[in-house]
Amino acid sequence: MSVPLSILDLSPISEGSSAAQALRNTIDLAQHAEQWGYHRYWLAEHHFVSVASSSSLTLLGLVAAATSRIRVGTGAVQVGHHTSASIVEAFGTVDALNPGRLDVGLGRSGHRRTAFTAPSTVSDTVIETEVRDGVVIPPPFEARNIIDKSKFLASAEALQQRNAEALDFADQVAEVRALLNGDFVSSNGVALHAVPGEGIDAQLWLFGSSAGESAELAGRLGLPFASAYHVAPGTAVAAVEAYRAAFVPSAVLSAPHVIVSADVVVAPTDERARELASTYGQWVYSIRSGAGAAKYPAPGAAPLTDEQLALVSDRLASQIVGAPETVTERLAALARVTGADELLITTITHDHADRLESHRLLAEAWNLTPARRREHADVGVRN
C-alpha cells in the first residue's frame, strides 16, 4: 500500500479504568506506532468528557519526549479556546527539545455555535445513504439533533474567559502563522516575537468536517487539510472536494495535500473485530445524547434501542471493522474515493491490548515499516 497511515488518539478511558491509565496507554501506543512505521501520531482535544486528551498541547510534549522519529501533532487544537500566542509558545516549547517533527493542527471548534444552537428545520428532502466504490456516505448528521445541549453550552462557557470573544477562524489562523513566521504585529502596532515558537520547523494543518470555512480557508492559503470522516462521514468527502476546488498553490504546497480519518477496528477475524467494536454505538450515543463521551463500555453492554440506533446509524455504517484483509480493502477504497494522500486511523476498544493489536495488524497488512515511513515525502516545511 503506497498511502501512508497515521494515528489519531483520543486517549479513551475504558469502563473500570482511569485517566492516568489512559494517558499511559497513549504513550505506549505512540511508542509502538513509531516501531510499526506509522507516519504521524496526532492527539485530539476534548473537554469535560471521559477521554484523557483534554490538554492536547501538554500531551503533545509527553508523546514527543517518549518517541524519537515519528511526527507528533494535534488533531486538532480547538483554537476558539486558546490564544494564538499560547498555541505557538506551546509548540515552540516542545519543538525546542524535539525539533523538526511537529504538526500544528488547528480546528475551528470553539469559534461558532450557530449550527449547534440553531432551531431545527423541517425539510421534505430525504437524503439516502450513498455507497461510492465501497465507501459509505450516509446522510449528514445535524449537530442540532443532539438531544440535550446544556452540557455543551456550559462547557463552551467554561473554556473561555468571561466576556471574551473568539476571533474569526481565518483571523486566528493568520495570527498563528504570523507568530510562527516572526512577522506578528499587535493591534497597536507593536511587533511581538514568540520565544520559543518563532521560526520552528513545523507543519501547519487545518482540520474540517464539511464543505465550509475550514476547507475553503485551507485551500485558499495553500495549506494541507485533514478531513474528519470518522466524525462526520456524511460531509467529509464534500469537505475534501471543497478544499481542492479552493486550492491555490503556495510556498508550502504546489498541489493539494489531504489526510482523511477513519474509525477502524482490526482483529484476526471479522467476527472477533465485530465483537470488539460491538459497543461503539453505545459510546457514540453517549456523545450525541448530550452527556458527552462516556467511559468506553466493554463488550456485552446493554444494546441500544431502535430510537437510539437511529441517532448513531451514520457512525456505525462508516466504521471500518474486520480482519486485516477486510479493513485494508475498505481503507484502500476510502483513499481512492477521496484521493487521500494519507489516512488517519483512530481505534477505540475497551482493552488496550486489543487496540494495540488492531494497529499492529493493520500496519502489517498495509506493509508499513519504519524505513518506509521515512521515505514518505513530507509536505510544507513552514506554515
Rank of each mutant, 00 (worst) to 15 (best):
residue 181 N to A: 11
residue 175 E to R: 07
residue 163 N to E: 15
residue 184 F to C: 04
residue 189 G to E: 11
residue 168 D to F: 14
residue 168 D to Q: 15
residue 169 F to S: 04
residue 180 L to T: 00
residue 166 A to P: 08
residue 183 D to E: 10
residue 180 L to A: 00
residue 196 P to S: 06
residue 162 R to W: 13
residue 166 A to T: 07
residue 178 A to L: 01
residue 195 V to T: 14
residue 193 H to Q: 14
residue 194 A to P: 03
residue 165 E to K: 13
residue 189 G to F: 06
residue 170 A to W: 05
residue 196 P to I: 03
residue 191 A to C: 09
residue 194 A to F: 00
residue 198 E to V: 13
residue 165 E to Y: 13
residue 171 D to N: 02
residue 181 N to T: 09
residue 197 G to P: 08
residue 178 A to F: 00
residue 174 A to W: 11
residue 168 D to L: 14
residue 194 A to L: 05
residue 169 F to W: 04
residue 176 V to Y: 07
residue 183 D to W: 02
residue 182 G to M: 10
residue 168 D to R: 14
residue 165 E to Q: 13
residue 197 G to T: 03
residue 196 P to A: 02
residue 189 G to D: 09
residue 197 G to F: 01
residue 180 L to P: 00
residue 172 Q to H: 01
residue 179 L to W: 02
residue 196 P to D: 05
residue 163 N to V: 12
residue 192 L to M: 06
residue 186 S to E: 10
residue 180 L to F: 00
residue 187 S to Q: 15
residue 182 G to L: 07
residue 166 A to E: 07
residue 184 F to D: 01
residue 183 D to M: 06
residue 191 A to T: 08
residue 163 N to P: 15
residue 190 V to A: 09
residue 171 D to Q: 08
residue 195 V to E: 10
residue 170 A to E: 09
residue 171 D to M: 05
residue 171 D to F: 04
residue 190 V to R: 12
residue 191 A to Y: 06
residue 189 G to C: 10
residue 174 A to L: 09
residue 169 F to I: 07
residue 197 G to K: 04
residue 193 H to W: 13
residue 164 A to H: 11
residue 198 E to A: 12
residue 170 A to Q: 08
residue 192 L to R: 03
residue 198 E to H: 15
residue 175 E to G: 08
residue 171 D to L: 06
residue 190 V to K: 08
residue 185 V to M: 09
residue 164 A to T: 09
residue 196 P to G: 02
residue 163 N to H: 11
residue 179 L to H: 03
residue 186 S to A: 14
residue 196 P to F: 03
residue 174 A to M: 12
residue 167 L to F: 15
residue 178 A to W: 00
residue 195 V to R: 10
residue 175 E to V: 08
residue 193 H to D: 12
residue 172 Q to N: 04
residue 170 A to T: 04
residue 172 Q to M: 07
residue 194 A to C: 05
residue 169 F to D: 04
residue 187 S to I: 15
residue 177 R to Y: 06
residue 169 F to Q: 02
residue 184 F to G: 02
residue 197 G to M: 03
residue 175 E to A: 09
residue 181 N to G: 12
residue 165 E to V: 11
residue 182 G to F: 08
residue 163 N to C: 12
residue 182 G to I: 10
residue 162 R to A: 15
residue 171 D to Y: 05
residue 176 V to N: 03
residue 171 D to G: 06
residue 197 G to V: 02
residue 177 R to W: 05
residue 193 H to E: 14
residue 197 G to W: 02
residue 170 A to H: 05
residue 178 A to P: 06
residue 176 V to W: 03
residue 191 A to W: 05
residue 182 G to A: 10
residue 174 A to F: 12
residue 182 G to Y: 08
residue 172 Q to C: 03
residue 191 A to E: 08
residue 185 V to G: 06
residue 186 S to W: 13
residue 179 L to R: 01
residue 186 S to G: 13
residue 169 F to L: 05
residue 190 V to T: 14
residue 193 H to C: 13
residue 163 N to S: 13
residue 179 L to I: 07
residue 179 L to K: 01
residue 183 D to F: 01
residue 187 S to E: 15
residue 189 G to P: 10
residue 182 G to D: 12
residue 175 E to K: 11
residue 166 A to I: 02
residue 181 N to P: 11
residue 163 N to L: 14
residue 169 F to K: 02
residue 162 R to I: 14
residue 195 V to M: 12
residue 190 V to S: 09
residue 192 L to P: 02
residue 168 D to I: 11
residue 173 V to T: 06
residue 175 E to W: 07
residue 179 L to D: 01
residue 197 G to S: 09
residue 178 A to I: 00
